[in-house]
Computed example of a mutant assay.
Amino acid sequence: MPVEALGDYDPNNIFARILRGEIPSKRVYEDDWAIAFHDINPQAPVHVLVIPRGPYRSWADFSANASEAEIAGFVRAVGATARLLGLEEPGYRLLANAGVHAHQEVPHLHVHIFGGRQMGAMLPR
C-alpha cells in the first residue's frame, strides 16, 4: 500500500520491525547508522535495500531532522554496501521513492541498490 501522506512516523512499518529484529532479513551490511538487506521481491540480479536506523519517512524528513552524523553515516553505508556487493564496476543504480507519486510503499526512508545487469532507461517515456 503506498504512503498516502507523510504524517507521523509509523513505528510498526515493516522496516522498523526489521530494525528491531521482529522480522528476519538477509543482511549484507550493517553499522551504527544503517542496515542493508536483500529485497524479498528482487527486480534485478542484485537488489538490496539500505535503511537508516532512525525513524525517518523520506529524504525531506531525514535531511531536515537527522543529525550530521546520521546523514554522513547513512550516505557512507550506501556506498559501502555497493562496494561490498562488487558493484563499483560495472555500475549500479540507486533509487529512492518518496510519497504517493513515486510509489513509496514503506514509510521509512530507504534506498534501493540495483545491479548485476544493464538497467536500461531511467524512466519510461
Rank of each mutant, 00 (worst) to 15 (best):
E22G: 10
G99P: 03
R125S: 15
A98P: 00
P55T: 07
P42H: 06
G120R: 07
G86K: 05
A5E: 10
V48P: 03
R27D: 15
Y9A: 09
V50G: 03
F114I: 01
A5L: 03
A96E: 11
V100K: 14
R76T: 04
D31G: 01
A69R: 13
I35Q: 05
M122W: 07
G99Y: 07
A72D: 13
R53E: 00
A82T: 13
G115Y: 08
H112S: 09
R117M: 12
G91L: 11
R83K: 14
R53D: 02
R83G: 03
Y92W: 14
G54H: 03
G54L: 05
R27K: 15
H112M: 06
V50R: 03
A98V: 08
R76L: 10
N97F: 14
D61E: 07
A64G: 05
P55I: 02
R93Y: 06
E70Y: 00
R20G: 04
N65L: 04
D39N: 15
M119Y: 11
P52D: 05
G54E: 06
D32S: 10
G115R: 08
A77D: 01
L19P: 09
N41G: 08
P2S: 13
T81D: 03
R27G: 04
W33G: 00
A66V: 05
L123I: 14
L95Q: 12
D10H: 10
H38Y: 15
G91F: 11
P55Y: 01
N65V: 01
G73P: 05
